[in-house]
Simulated assay, not measured.
Amino acid sequence: MDRELPEGLFGAGVVGAPMAGGPSRPPLAEAVSASGGLGFLAGGYKAPDALAREVDELSATGLAFGVNLFVPADEPVDREAVLAYRERLRPLAERLGVELPEPRWADDDAYPAKLAHLLERRPAVVSFTFALPPAGDVASLRRAGVFVLQTVTSPDEARAAEELGVDGVVAQHAAAGGHFGAFLPAPAFAGPLPELVAAVRAAVGIPVLAAGGIGTAEAARAVRAAGAGAVQLGTAFLRTPEAGTNPVQRAALADPSFERTAQTRAFSGKTARGLENSFMREYADAPAGYPTVHYLTAPLRAAAVAAGDAQGTNLWAGTAWKEAREEPAADVVARFAV
Rank of each mutant, 00 (worst) to 15 (best):
P287R: 07
A329C: 11
A307T: 08
E94W: 01
R260P: 08
G274S: 01
A222L: 14
V82K: 11
Y111R: 13
A20I: 00
L238T: 09
E87T: 11
G234R: 01
G212L: 07
V223D: 05
T313I: 01
D74F: 09
V223M: 07
L69I: 05
P185Q: 12
L296M: 06
E80C: 05
Q172C: 04
E99W: 00
K270D: 02
P103W: 06
A243T: 03
G205C: 06
A330H: 05
E102W: 01
V32C: 00
S127P: 07
V82C: 10
E242K: 08
T261K: 11
A284P: 13
A211F: 04
L38C: 03
A113N: 06
L63G: 00
L132N: 11
V146N: 04
F40V: 05
E157I: 10
A93R: 04
T264S: 15
L58A: 01
R273P: 10
T129W: 04
Q172A: 00
R301Y: 00
H294M: 00
D107Y: 10
L141T: 11
V200D: 07
V98W: 01
D309E: 08
A306C: 02
R104K: 14
L141Y: 07
L209R: 05
R3D: 15
A186P: 01
S24K: 02
S59P: 04
G8Q: 10
D137P: 10
P185C: 08
A236Y: 09
R25E: 14
A52T: 14
N68Q: 07
L5K: 07
G97W: 03
A160E: 13
A320V: 06
R260G: 14
E259A: 15
E75D: 15
L63V: 01
S35T: 08
A124L: 01
A211Q: 14
E218L: 10
V170N: 02
G212N: 05
P247I: 13
A203R: 09
R90C: 00
R159M: 14
D137W: 01
V208G: 04
F267S: 01
N68E: 09
T245W: 09
R86I: 02
R260W: 13
A288L: 12
A304C: 03
A226T: 12
A81V: 12
A158Q: 12
W105N: 14
L28P: 06
V98Y: 02
V169S: 07
Q263A: 10
E54Y: 01
V197G: 07
R86E: 13
R335T: 15
T61H: 04
K114E: 12
P27M: 03
F10A: 02
A12M: 12
